[in-house]
Computed example of a mutant assay.
Amino acid sequence: MTATFTSSFRKAGLALIFAASISAVTSTSGFAFSAEAQSMCTGDAFRLCSSEIPNIPAITSCMIKQRASLSSGCRTVLDRDLAAQKSGKLAAQ
């Protein structure tokens, strides 16, 4: 029972770290991941990029590098958010 509780507690902690990391990316690098992307990609981030937590730029870079391995839902929203960010930067220049 204790092992199950510890595992669940650790997963919840990692989820909070990832959410905080995504939130910080929004404020520090100007890239705004949508709430949908956070929801759809949290599992992929843990599965593919957990070694990068809590390094925010490294998590973002890892997710982009691992695009082919992302779940379809995460890939869809990540691509949409990246495209929106690029078009926003182009419009601002």
Rank of each mutant, 00 (worst) to 15 (best):
A37C: 14
P54W: 00
A35L: 11
S21D: 15
S27T: 12
I53F: 06
Q38S: 15
V25H: 03
A32Y: 02
I22Y: 11
F18K: 07
G43H: 08
V25F: 03
C49I: 00
I22D: 10
T42K: 12
G30L: 09
E52P: 04
A20C: 10
A37S: 15
P54K: 03
I53K: 00
S29F: 09
S27E: 11
A37D: 04
D44P: 01
A24P: 05
F18L: 15
S39N: 13
C49Q: 04
P54V: 02
T26Y: 04
V25I: 07
Q38G: 15
C49R: 04
V25P: 01
F33L: 14
L48G: 06
S21N: 14
I53H: 01
C41F: 01
A45R: 02
V25R: 02
S39W: 04
L48V: 07
A37P: 02
A37G: 06
S21L: 08
T26D: 10
C49V: 04
S39K: 09
L48F: 08
S34M: 07
S29L: 08
S21Y: 01
I22F: 12
F18P: 01
E36G: 06
F46S: 11
S34A: 09
V25Y: 02
S27M: 10
G30P: 09
S29G: 12
S34D: 10
T28P: 04
R47H: 11
T26W: 06
T26C: 07
F31N: 07
A35H: 04
G30H: 10
